[in-house]
């Protein structure tokens, strides 16, 4: 199963992805691929893994391979797999890949379409893939979303956040592999807010997460989410993830 966590900037995508990664890390025998799809690289920080090499580096290296005369699809696929293996950081049953930031304009092959190829080539070997997507709809293009089975939409309690989630769902609807999409509402202080969002949106609200100080503390102290205790937010996130089929 490939799940992408999407939503407006700052609503909690990385927090949820990190809790998902940590929960899956505890499930021995389940092979998990975790993709930090945000060029800013927040998920790596949340999990305290540092990518020495990113997907963008792999992309550049594969372009070099083309320049060096390799033209066959199979040859390039081999080169890509080799470089991906160098870029992946492993931790137990978990493999981590960071998309990185493209710094050249020579977009022979845009990073997002490269991300699709990488996911297609890699995800088959894993039982679960979690993608912490870039904010907004940039990655919600045909390329990446065609590989995704479930879009976990995240919003805070603001109307703007919910609207962005709806837009993402609409753009993604025609592309997502499965028909899975659900909304989680994050940083809830008053349960009444969840009820009013439920009434106002056509999205399927699959859960809500309370405002929780331990999340903020973990973020501020840069402690790895692998060690996050069972706080209220973690419990609600895990429950929402159960509703998606990831856990």
């Amino acid at each position: 199963m490939i799940l992408a966590v999407c939503g407006k900037g700052g609503v909690g995508k990385t927090t949820i992805s990190a809790v998902a990664a940590a929960a899956l890390r505890r499930r021995a025998g389940v092979r998990v691929l975790v993709v930090d799809g945000d060029p800013a690289g927040g998920l790596g920080m949340a999990l305290s893994v540092e990518a020495k090499k990113t997907l963008n580096d792999v992309r550049v290296e594969v372009i070099d391979e083309v320049k060096a005369g390799e033209r066959s699809k199979r040859g390039l696929a081999q080169a890509m797999d080799y470089r991906l293996a160098e870029a992946i950081i492993e931790n137990g049953n978990l493999a981590f890949l960071s998309i990185g930031r493209p710094d050249d304009v020579g977009c022979y092959c845009r990073v997002n379409s490269f991300l699709k190829m990488a996911i297609e080539s890699l995800a088959g070997g894993f039982d679960m893939t979690v993608i912490d997507a870039e904010a907004g709809i940039e990655q919600v293009n045909r390329d990446v979303m065609a590989t995704v089975d479930y879009i976990l939409l995240v919003s805070d309690t603001s109307a703007k956040g919910v609207r962005v989630a709806e837009t993402i769902r609409d753009v993604a609807k025609r592309m997502v592999g499965g028909d899975g999409a659900g909304l989680v509402i994050n940083r809830v202080r008053d349960e009444g807010e969840v009820e009013s969002i439920r009434r106002s949106t056509s999205l399927d609200v699959i859960g809500w997460i309370p405002e929780d100080d331990s999340i903020r503390r973990y973020d501020e102290n840069m402690t790895s989410f692998f060690d996050l205790p069972e706080c209220p937010a973690r419990i609600s996130i895990e429950n929402a993830l159960k509703a998606t089929g990831l856990l």
Binding site: E65, A68, G69, Q78, A79, Y82, R83, A85
Partner: peptide, 11 residues
């Protein structure tokens, strides 16, 4: 197996 044609590497 991972192979890198241009570097004649196999891993």
């Amino acid at each position: 197996v991972r192979t890198m044609p241009s570097r004649q590497s196999i891993w």
